[in-house]
Amino acid sequence: MKIWTVLALLTAGTVSLSAASPFGAWQQHRQRRLDRQPVPERFDIRLGVAGSPVRAGSLYLDGGIGAWLAKYDDSYDWYDNRLRDIYSDYNGPTRTTGAIGIGFDYAVCRWFSVSADLAVTLLWHDSYDAITNQQVRGGTGAAIYLLPRAKFMYMNRRNVRLYGSLGVGAAKYVGFPKLSYSYTSDSGVHFVDNSLRPCGEFSPIGIEVGRKFFGFAELGVGTLYYGLQAGIGYKF
């Protein structure tokens, strides 16, 4: 028991001595200064998941305005609910992976970075027969985004960084039947492909925690997701 008491006293004495000594104070000051420094690495690579991909979901389920117009193209106001609609197949639950992405950042200066994100959202559902309610087929769609972004650092410290970003790019929607379709009107059969579209994402606030290996989370609204994106990254 005595030995533990002695060890405890020695430890306490050492700590209080180091904190009180000029060397200890200098070391703490140096550490604080170091922590306030921006992270020195200029590149980073990030992996993230974002939810919820509202825009991709709405395009997958309802198509764009073009699909909506085509639906009524050869009809008039009073056709607004047609037999073919009443007895068309319907969808079961639509599920998604969220937007899974990889991003590369380059810090141009202390407060500004440029980045390029490549993300994929998968969506899938089964279709059912309106009369028998039996499953008739399954469908999967993929939205692929390429999004260059400008990233503004509000606070840039070695271990914590706050930022906002704005990105504009392009999205390709594969397997979205309501974006690539054909329809028949009195003037014939028409083929439409609206699967390549612009996309954008605005993130007013995001946080990175960690130094070389870090976690991040950001709030955003746009084509990729409405809500939160989070993930991990590595600086080099």
Binding site: G51, P53, Y90, N91, G92, P93, T94, T97, A230
Partner: peptide, 18 residues
């Protein structure tokens, strides 16, 4: 943080039905 993102990403975006 990554796990929270995965959870918040959600899975079902439409309940479906006729």
């Amino acid at each position: 943080v990554a796990a929270a993102g995965l959870l918040l990403a959600g899975c079902t975006i439409d309940e479906g039905g006729n």
